[in-house]
């Protein structure tokens, strides 16, 4: 992985490019839930996986404010390509999601994906929310610190599958590939890999079972 190699360089030119692209084709992203004022700290980090990185916490935008009004605290991350990104604590996830989905003013009722990301020091469970009826979009993340996960255990995140069927297979897939255990999932089994597969292939520490032939092959992609 080369992601640690040039973080400074990446930071420095991320911001202007992003602005330019938005100016160039405004019609391409009509759905930008752009906050009214982009705080200066937005430029600080384009890397999502480090919640500790921004020195000043960002002001909550539309959805963060909405959740705050309903007593759910969320932390705002720098926008991902103009889409509001918030972090919700694991124990408040289900409540937050129910609110976002069912409240008549927000109604983010299309759960596009549940993604597991094995970041540098956290396991992220990323939810992309859209709406069937309007253009808002939101990215919700649940971060589990790797330090908090006991040896031999899987990071646990509450499951949405019991009230949101769309999450069912996505959570199974994330469990399968990234190894995030969705507690209270009705049927948390591997979905893409065989049931007896060992390990979770998209983890950073995953050791690919390599046969002897490939091991010796100097051109092997592995």
């Amino acid at each position: 992985m080369t992601d640690e190699a040039k973080p400074e360089e990446a930071k420095s030119d991320a911001k202007p490019e992003e602005v330019k692209s938005e100016a160039a084709k405004p019609e391409a992203k009509p759905a930008d839930a752009k906050p009214a004022a982009k705080p200066a700290a937005a430029a600080a980090a384009a890397k999502p996986a480090e919640p500790a990185a921004p020195p000043v916490p960002l002001e909550p935008a539309k959805f963060g404010q909405f959740l705050k009004e309903h007593g759910i605290s969320s932390e705002r991350l720098p926008d991902s390509c103009g889409v509001e990104t918030i972090v919700v604590a694991a124990d408040q996830l289900e409540k937050a999601m129910r609110l976002l989905r069912n409240s008549s003013e927000i109604k983010l009722d299309l759960l596009l994906t549940v993604t597991g990301v094995d970041s540098a020091d956290t396991f992220d469970s990323v939810y992309h929310l859209w709406s069937y009826s309007h253009l808002d979009q939101l990215v919700v993340k649940v971060l589990t610190k790797k330090a908090d996960v006991a040896e031999g255990e899987l990071p646990a995140v509450p499951s949405l599958a019991n009230f949101w069927s769309a999450a069912n297979w996505h959570e199974r897939e994330t469990y399968d590939l990234v190894g995030i255990r969705y507690s209270s999932h009705p049927y948390l089994r591997r979905i893409l890999n065989p049931w007896d597969w060992e390990g979770h292939p998209l983890r950073r520490d995953y050791k690919q079972l390599v046969d002897a032939l490939n091991d010796k092959n100097p051109h092997s992609m592995r």
Binding site: M1, T2, D3, E4, A5, K6, P7, E9, A10, A14, K47, P48, A49, L112, T113, T115, V117, D118, V126, H128, L202
Partner: peptide
């Protein structure tokens, strides 16, 4: 058909996710 990409500025992606 959605595509969620996380890049670190390198030659490869950090995470690719297909919807």
């Amino acid at each position: 058909l959605g595509c969620y990409v996380t890049s670190s500025g390198g030659e490869k992606a950090v995470r690719f996710r297909w919807r």
